[in-house]
Nucleic acid binder design. Structure first.
Length: 623
DNA sequence: CTAGGGTTAG
């Protein structure tokens, strides 16, 4: 190449450099691409309009706006600022480096660009990615007014502006107007709308769009998988994953991340394991997103050994990897290990963020490491300039509360510089239940229902506190409140994972295809239990309708056990996936059943299952 | 200029 360069004219000389630059940028080797530029100058070769777009793209990808602005200077000198590719490159580079005002300046100063769709597109998407959505919408209107043609890329840049539930209206009006442009048959535009509706929580609408697509691409499937996963619809994710397979669509890393996240929420370890196998078979083993999702999945399913193994096997661990493994140890009560790992992470030069602190604080709380937790809370601000949010305060209230330091917890809430949310008062209420403090519970309850009047969990909690204190007046008062507000506790739910399918059960469920047989097994089991161990102390079955409240029918856990026993072959492990806080009645039932059958019954924590976000599914609390 | 992704108590 060197010989080439010396012998040709200036302009043509830069061509081999440009080709190499373009190749490197295409392969995302941006640093190498940028290092080519000084080499080129050293050779005495001049950059031209074909050089800069790739240099700018590299600056954008690496978020180096300062270097980018030096290129801007060069571009002005060379005089190719009016070239569309250079211009859009500049706008995009400044936007990716968060210098939107510079981008706007480039856009405004260039007369020729005013009518160019690509330049508008670059700025529209730049505004959106810098969360300046109203500016993006204004610019979009301006395009229409000035008669600049809108293309599908314009929409791809603009639609993500409407990804929060607040913007659903704007999003759907945008959707309506795109019908007018005729982009409703463009696969990428529809994919983008699917994502938008999913992020707005409008799952049904997203599903409708997906179902009506005549041609679906891998990204369409992925948008649905991730959307379901983000909305906590883990069973839908698994169903869709099977459907993909049947339609001959091959999953890629993005698909598998969504599937793993749902396995984590369901506690569906065997599907998760299957996915891990697929990852290895497809050669995705070094994808950091996938490894983090694997750590999370194994940790949540209680398999800390495997979570640790994935973590140890990663060539590079990001903050998210550390957070996932720390959270995993924390949620299973290994507070000391979690704290050790947190220290190790800091030693390895990774700075914790707010999320990492939530994990370590809650780990301290679960393990009773009260002072350690207090120390970390102080450290947030002192060492890392992180302002504690309400989620950190609720961890602290939980930490102090569990340790019986209720007064300190209350003082902490009162000293908060930000407004406490429902979770903060809720944590105090929970602590009052553990330490049987009725008086403080009443205060916490009053505050928490001001903030979350619809959250049934808190009513149930206070009612149970009254009940433990034999305060029947209190219990009645809460029930009347709930009745007046027409609040009803969501039923609890248990899952059994069998041959890769997840079977959900709710209290008194009759929906399952094998419903009759399940009830038969249950009755048999209970008959044997009666025979062997006598009548269980508590039996909540068939208590109906006194004072208008529905009472517990047949517990979901019991149905799940009966289903498991009915459908597994000898020696198979029955996995009951359930909220850890099962009631004494069910606990007794589990113990007796596992004595009767010589199979292993495993109880898993699935409290994270989003369906129950607004109230625990502890069946004791179900009225 | 350009659609889909991992970590967050109670």
């Amino acid at each position: 190449m060197k010989n080439h360069c010396k012998s040709k004219s200036m302009n043509a000389l830069s061509t081999p450099w440009n080709t190499q630059l373009r190749e490197l940028a295409k392969r995302c080797q941006f640093l190498q691409a940028l290092s080519l530029y000084p080499q080129m100058l050293r050779h005495g070769d001049r950059p031209n309009a074909f050089t800069f777009p790739f240099a700018l793209k590299s600056c954008a990808a690496l978020s180096l706006p300062i270097l980018g602005s030096q290129f801007h200077g060069q571009i002005t000198k060379v005089g190719c600022v009016f070239e569309p590719f250079v211009q859009t490159g500049l706008i995009s580079m400044y936007c990716k480096g968060s210098l939107v005002d510079n981008a706007r300046k480039v856009f405004e100063e260039n007369f020729h660009s005013r009518k160019l769709t690509v330049c508008y597109n670059a700025l529209v998407s730049g505004y959106v990615s810098n969360s300046k959505c109203s500016e993006a919408v204004l610019l979009f209107r301006q395009m229409n007014e000035e008669g600049v043609p809108v293309n599908s890329v314009t929409l791809l840049g603009l639609i993500p502006a409407c990804v929060s539930p607040i913007n659903l209206e704007l999003g759907s009006s945008l959707h309506c107007s795109t019908l007018k442009y005729g982009f409703d048959s463009d696969v990428s535009v529809v994919n983008c709308f699917i994502t938008m509706y999913m992020k707005c929580g409008s799952v049904n609408y997203a599903q409708k769009l997906f179902d009506e697509m005549p041609v679906k691409g891998l990204i369409s499937w992925n948008a649905m998988v991730s959307g379901y996963a983000q909305n906590g619809l883990a069973t839908n994710v698994l169903e869709l994953y099977r459907n993909m397979d049947m339609n001959g669509v091959h999953p890629d890393p993005v698909t598998l991340v969504g599937v793993l996240s749902s396995c984590a929420n369901l506690g569906a370890q065997s599907v998760g394991h299957e996915v891990e196998f697929k990852i290895q078979a497809s050669g995705f083993t070094s994808n950091p997103f996938l490894n983090n999702a694997l750590i999370n999945m194994y940790a949540r399913c209680g398999n800390l050994t495997k979570a640790q193994a994935v973590f140890d096997g990663m060539p590079e661990r990001t903050l998210v990897s550390w957070t996932a493994i720390i959270g995993g140890y924390g949620m299973h009560g290994h507070g000391e290990i979690a704290v050790q790992l947190f220290k190790e992470m800091i030693r390895s030069g990774i700075e914790p963020d707010g999320t990492a602190f939530v994990c370590v604080l809650s780990a301290c709380s679960h393990a009773g490491l009260t002072d350690q937790g207090l120390e970390y809370f102080k450290m947030m601000k002192r060492n890392y300039q992180l302002e504690p949010g309400p989620e950190h305060y609720s961890c602290m209230v939980d930490l102090l509360g569990r340790a019986g330091r209720l007064k300190e917890a209350q003082t902490l809430i009162e000293s908060m510089p930000i407004k406490p949310d429902g979770a903060v008062w809720g944590a105090l209420l929970g602590a009052c239940k553990i330490h049987k403090n009725v008086e403080l519970a009443e205060l916490a309850f009053e505050r928490v229902i001001e903030l979350e009047p619809e959250n049934i969990g808190y009513y149930v909690l206070l009612s149970n506190i009254y009940s433990n204190a034999n305060n029947s007046k209190g219990v009645l008062r809460i029930r009347i409140m709930m009745k007046e507000k027409k609040l009803k506790k969501d039923p609890g739910c248990s899952y059994v994972e069998l041959k890769g399918r997840v079977h959900p059960f709710i209290v008194g469920d009759r929906n399952h295809l094998q419903s009759d047989e399940i009830y038969r097994v249950l009755e048999e089991l209970e008959a044997i239990i009666m025979q062997e161990f006598g009548k269980p102390e508590k039996d909540n079955r068939e208590e109906s309708n006194k004072d208008g409240f529905t009472r517990v029918g047949v517990h979901s856990e019991k149905l799940a056990v009966a289903f498991g026993l009915l459908n597994t072959t000898t020696g198979a492990e029955v996995v009951i996936i359930k909220n850890l806080r099962i009631c004494e009645d069910c606990h007794l039932f589990f113990k007796m059943v596992s004595k009767i059958v010589h199979r292993q019954l495993t109880v898993r924590d699935a409290t994270r299952f989003h369906h129950f976000r607004n109230g625990s599914c502890s069946c004791k609390d179900y009225w």
